[in-house]
């Protein structure tokens, strides 16, 4: 079985396409559309990578990132933040996530970054 990737993205279209290409690349993808469901996911700590959107209907992805990084069980799992927000640089300064990707993204860029973080564990 391939590596496990947990995806938190409220937009169905984006969630679908990401799931589609990652599955196509033999990754095991768990998709969530809101923070509540994501936080309730029992196998959170057994993931290899988190892909988190920033703007979510029930909260801010950056805070989710903080929670994950402050949790012993999850803090070593790399996180990639995704945002349509233009202020990515600013975001980078205040967030402990390993990587950031701006929407709209090139799927090849996304795949490259995902592959990088899965093959170079931190």
């Amino acid at each position: 079985m391939g590596k496990k990737i947990c995806l938190l993205e409220d937009d169905e279209g984006i969630r679908e396409i990401i799931e589609m290409i990652l599955t196509d690349e033999q990754y095991e993808v768990y998709g969530f559309s809101n923070i509540k469901d994501f936080m309730a996911f029992k196998d959170k700590g057994k993931q290899d990578l988190y892909l988190l959107d920033v703007r979510l209907p029930d909260g801010n992805g950056l805070l989710v990132c903080d929670d994950l990084k402050n949790d012993e069980a999850t803090k070593k799992i790399p996180i990639m933040m995704m945002s349509a927000h233009a202020g990515l640089n600013e975001m980078k300064r205040n967030c402990k996530a390993e990587d950031f990707i701006a929407k709209p993204f090139d799927i090849f860029d996304l795949l490259k970054k995902v592959d990088y973080h899965l093959t170079n564990p931190h």
Binding site: D11, G13, I14, E16, I17, I18, M20, I21, A84, K103, P104, F105, D106, I107
Partner: peptide, 10 residues
């Protein structure tokens, strides 16, 4: 940007 992202992906 949101639909554009998925559209680009598709």
């Amino acid at each position: 940007k949101t639909p554009l992202t998925s559209m680009g992906g598709y």
